[in-house]
C-alpha cells in the first residue's frame, strides 16, 4: 500500500493533529511500512469467516431505568482547564 502526502494530510486531519513537514515525511514512511505489513492479512482467504468483534458471545447486558446519580458538577469540572458558570468553555462555535 502506497501512502501519499494526501493520505497523511487526510488522516492527520481526521485525528486532529498538526504535523510538521519532518513529521509528515516520517509518518509517510512509517505508515507505509506498517500498512504494507498489515496487507499480509490478504494472504489468507477469510471470505467464509464472520467478523468477530467480541471474543466471547456475551449478550444483553442491561441496567434498569432507575436514577442513581446526583449532582456531581464540581467533581466533573475539577479538571477543566477553563470553566465559567458551571460550564466547560470552548472558543466560539456559532457564527
Amino acid at each position: 500500500m502506497k501512502i501519499t502526502d494526501e493520505t497523511i494530510t487526510y488522516v492527520a486531519a481526521l485525528a486532529k493533529l498538526e504535523l510538521s513537514d519532518d513529521e509528515k515525511d516520517r509518518a509517510k514512511t512509517d505508515l507505509e511500512n506498517i500498512i504494507s505489513y498489515m496487507d499480509t492479512m490478504n494472504e489468507i482467504d477469510t471470505s467464509n469467516v464472520e467478523p468477530m468483534s467480541h471474543a466471547f458471545p456475551m449478550k444483553n447486558v442491561f441496567r434498569e431505568d432507575v436514577v442513581t446519580n446526583g449532582d456531581e458538577r464540581d467533581n466533573l469540572l475539577s479538571n477543566a482547564p477553563v470553566k465559567k458558570d458551571g460550564c466547560f468553555i470552548v472558543p466560539k462555535t456559532v457564527e
Binding site: M38, I44, T46, V49, A55
Partner: peptide, 13 residues
C-alpha cells in the same frame, strides 16, 4: 483492514 482484521481474529480464536 478493520473488517478483515475482525475476520482474522475469528480465525485465531
Amino acid at each position: 483492514y478493520y473488517n478483515k482484521a475482525l475476520r482474522v481474529k475469528a480465525l485465531i480464536k
